[in-house]
Amino acid sequence: MTSRALAGLIPDATAKTAFGQTTAHVPAAGYRRAAETAHALGCLMFDWLGVEDAGRPGASGRVHAVLLHVVHPATTAGLLIRAELADEPLPSVADLWAGAAWHEREAAEMFGLALDHPVDRLLLSDSFAGHPLRKDFVLASRVVRPWPGRLEPGEDGTSAPSRRRTAPPGVPDPSWGPRREDR
């Protein structure tokens, strides 16, 4: 059975195939039922579960797309089940595929998804605040602390004043543009 046929048997799914990968788009309420149907139809190999921050707010929270990839071992046909969750908790599929438990815990911790069962911290310490894989999470950068490495020539003020800084590749020399006197 092909993955396109598998996706056609999942209730309330819209199946699309692109680049050899069939994706079944299901509503949030049908995510668990779609996973159960795929498991009953022979997709017994769990491959991965991922989350995508859609970057837009929902009614009372952010919208996340949950992607579940499973494989039919006899045909090696993969099926990607995709559902967008806004406010509802992510239903667990760990009872169908044991490997999904780790992925669900990662999604809860890194994206802030609510799960339908309690979970412990997996990757981050208890004192860590926020969800680092969301688009609205601000990462610490060199702006807070200057680069500790060696400075480039001309940046420390000790190099010879005659040393000319070179332009990056592809940038024409100043003779091609407007002159400072012309401005």
Rank of each mutant, 00 (worst) to 15 (best):
T2S: 13
S3F: 13
A5T: 10
L6A: 04
G8I: 10
L9G: 11
L9R: 15
I10R: 09
I10Q: 12
P11D: 12
P11F: 00
A13I: 03
A13V: 07
A13T: 00
A13Q: 13
T14V: 10
T14Q: 11
A15K: 10
A15S: 10
A15R: 07
A15Y: 13
A18Y: 08
Q21N: 09
Q21R: 05
T22M: 10
T22D: 06
T23V: 15
A24V: 07
H25M: 14
H25G: 14
H25S: 13
V26E: 10
A28I: 11
A28R: 12
A29D: 11
Y31D: 09
Y31F: 12
R33G: 05
E36H: 13
L41T: 03
G42L: 10
G42S: 02
M45Y: 11
M45P: 00
F46Q: 02
D47N: 13
D47G: 09
D47I: 12
W48M: 15
W48K: 14
G50V: 09
G50W: 14
V51Q: 04
E52I: 12
A54I: 06
G55P: 04
R56A: 06
G58K: 12
A59V: 13
A59K: 11
S60Y: 05
S60E: 02
S60M: 05
G61A: 15
G61N: 15
H64Y: 15
A65D: 10
V66R: 04
L68S: 07
V71E: 12
V71H: 05
H72Y: 04
H72I: 01
A74Y: 15
A74D: 15
T76W: 00
A77D: 14
L80M: 09
I81Q: 01
E84P: 04
L85V: 01
L85D: 02
L85T: 03
A86I: 01
A86S: 12
A86P: 04
A86H: 12
A86E: 15
L90W: 08
A94W: 06
D95G: 07
D95H: 11
D95Y: 13
L96A: 08
L96N: 14
W97V: 06
A100T: 09
A100P: 06
H103D: 14
R105D: 09
R105K: 02
A107S: 13
G112T: 02
A114M: 09
A114N: 14
P118T: 03
P118N: 11
D120I: 00
R121T: 02
L124A: 02
S125K: 09
S125C: 06
D126C: 06
D126T: 11
D126Y: 10
S127E: 14
F128H: 12
G130V: 03
H131K: 03
P132W: 07
L133S: 06
L133F: 08
K135T: 02
K135P: 03
D136P: 01
V138M: 08
L139R: 15
R142P: 00
V144G: 06
R145Q: 05
R145I: 12
W147M: 02
L151P: 02
E152T: 11
G154A: 05
G157F: 00
A160G: 04
A160M: 01
A160E: 00
P161R: 05
R163T: 15
R163K: 14
R163M: 07
R164C: 10
R165Q: 02
G170S: 03
D173T: 07
W176C: 00
G177Q: 03
E181K: 14
D182Q: 06
